[in-house]
Design a binder for these strands. Structure first.
Length: 518
DNA sequence: GGATTGAGTCT
DNA sequence: GGAGACTCAATCC
């Protein structure tokens, strides 16, 4: 850490805070500014920092940039800190300190001080380390891909314009809608605020009405991947490190998940073939290293089994059954051996849908079945997994009376809309109530695992590093001769992060890029 | 130039 | 009319 500098690497404020926190005088103030305050304020969503500072301190918040002078040329940390000290009065530091105390006491009042001190605050240096480490990208590979896709797009554009009978901007939904629905006379469907929808759902349904539609779907997919990933990622490589440094945002998602930005490395494609080829660009940064990926298997369903205490669901996990097949057997009333692919596919949608508070209408849409059938399936599900229904009912009613829901570790989400008179708004809050404790507990668990893994790596003096978190997955760059130890260490800490009534399974893969590691 | 909208990517 | 995110391009102001 002695060479730490305030610069674009680890530009996320958490990293800068970590660096500055070496100087005692700033510790509380900076920690307050970047973490505790925003964490707490995001957690209840009722205030913003400026308003709070104004209300309690008659003082305007000093931004981090103002405090540190980031954005100036790179200076050694000591110099930056000393400069900041001379630029700002002791009074400012005192004020931030007093706000820290205020917010800390509120955390305590809401029962979240332990969550803060045992989990969130300890995660700060872990995330800072990951941001600073960055991940290597195979630029040559992406450049080649970019050229190939450009050719493909060019010919698609020519075809589309020819079929449309005129040249227009395919990226403009307005112009595309005009071509599709006015000029070509295709049947209109969903409307948006500004016109007719041309999204993938609409296009899929028009596929057999006009050959232009398939071309459009292809064009959309390729141009998205090209602009967002293939062309964007190489631009984001840090000149000094030669790697891409994301920011992991700790106080954005209402459920307690992390988010990732600049660039977002939590939504790198994987579903389609061309998407998967983008993952191959994520590689080890040096010879002798490999990429390792470790992901929780069905963590949210396991958390739901634990929280609800449903015996049938828990039993399925204890017996290491394929959960979607088991659900299919129970819902469709057949033996597990007789579950067809289609039944399993439907059961999978049901399993996820339940956690998101889906209704008959939603399920019927997703499965393309009648609402009556969907209603039957849902009823059968709750008959076979009765405690799940119980959990949903209990959670909503406790949200109504308390105004919030919480995870196993006490993380709260306030739901001010839970008693709204508007049915749409209220039901939306009810779905959030159902989902947050599940999604949030899973987030708590992987965060805990990350803290433990980070500690274990440094204790064991390993050269392998944790680079990314993607909600239920951790990505590492591992030294080849540490593979065995890393597999064991990571599996152990992920499995043991929290003791649930169901076992936790962790799948680990190693390869020479992120795709191969899956 | 910033904010909004529609679209698409992930878990 | 299932939960949670972020980014890009077009468009609006």
């Amino acid at each position: 850490m002695e060479n730490a500098r305030i610069e674009k690497i680890g530009h996320n404020i958490k990293y800068d805070a970590l660096v500055l926190s070496q100087f005692d005088v700033w510790t509380e103030g900076v920690t307050f500014d970047t973490m505790i305050a925003s964490y707490l304020l995001r957690a209840d969503g009722r205030h913003n920092l400026d308003a709070l500072a104004k209300e309690h301190l008659q003082f305007k918040k000093v931004s981090f940039d103002e405090l540190t002078g980031t954005g100036k040329e790179h200076k050694p940390i000591r110099e930056v800190a000393l400069q900041a000290l001379s630029d700002y009065s002791c009074e400012d530091a005192d004020i931030t300190f007093r706000l820290f105390e205020l917010l800390k006491s509120r955390l305590a009042k809401e029962g979240m001080l332990n969550l803060g001190e045992d989990l969130e605050f300890r995660l700060i240096p872990v995330l800072a380390g990951m941001e600073k480490e960055g991940i290597a990208i195979d630029v040559e590979y992406l450049k080649t891909m970019s050229v190939d896709i450009a050719k493909l797009l060019k010919s698609l554009i020519t075809d589309i314009h020819a079929m449309a009978g005129s040249e227009f901007n395919i990226n403009s939904t307005q112009q595309l809608g005009d071509i599709l629905f006015n000029k070509l006379g295709l049947p209109t469907q969903k409307k948006t605020k500004t016109g007719f929808s041309t999204d993938v759902g609409v296009l899929e349904s028009l596929r057999h009405q006009h050959p232009i539609v398939d071309k459009l779907l292809e064009y959309r997919q390729f141009s998205k991947l090209k602009s967002t990933y293939i062309d964007a990622l190489p631009e984001l490589i840090n000149k000094r490190t030669g790697r891409v440094h994301t920011s992991f945002n700790q106080t954005v998602a209402a459920t307690g998940r992390l988010s990732s930005s600049d660039p977002n490395l939590q939504n790198i494609p994987i579903r389609t073939e061309i998407g998967r080829s983008i993952r191959k660009a994520f590689v080890p940064g040096a010879k002798g290293f490999l990429i390792m990926s470790a992901d929780y298997s069905q963590i949210e369903l396991r958390v739901m089994a634990h929280i609800s205490g449903d015996e049938a669901l828990s039993e399925a996990f204890r017996n290491k059954e394929d959960i979607h097949t088991t659900t299919a057997a129970k819902v469709f009333g057949v033996e597990p051996g007789d579950v067809t692919k289609d039944m399993r596919r439907k059961a999978k949608e049901v399993n996820f849908g339940i956690m998101y508070g889906i209704g008959p209408f939603g399920l019927s849409n997703r499965l393309e079945i009648s609402q009556g059938e969907a209603k039957e399936i849902i009823a059968k599900y709750f008959e076979r997994f009765p405690k799940v229904r119980q959990y949903i009912n209990d959670t909503i009613s406790s949200a109504r009376s308390n105004g919030y829901v919480s995870t196993l570790l006490g993380r709260r989400r306030y739901l001010s809309d839970i008693n709204d008179r508007n049915q749409n708004i209220r039901q939306n809050a009810e779905r959030q109530a159902i989902n947050m404790p599940i999604q949030g507990t899973a987030a708590d668990m992987i965060k805990l695992a990350m803290i433990h893994i980070h500690g274990a790596l440094s204790k064991a003096g390993l050269e392998s590093r944790m680079l990314l978190q993607v909600h239920d997955e951790l990505v590492f760059e591992i030294k080849k001769n540490e593979e065995k130890e890393m597999r064991a260490l990571v599996t152990k800490h992920m499995q043991q992060s929290m003791k649930l009534d169901v076992p936790l399974e962790v799948d680990i893969g190693v390869g020479k890029n992120w795709l191969e590691a899956h």
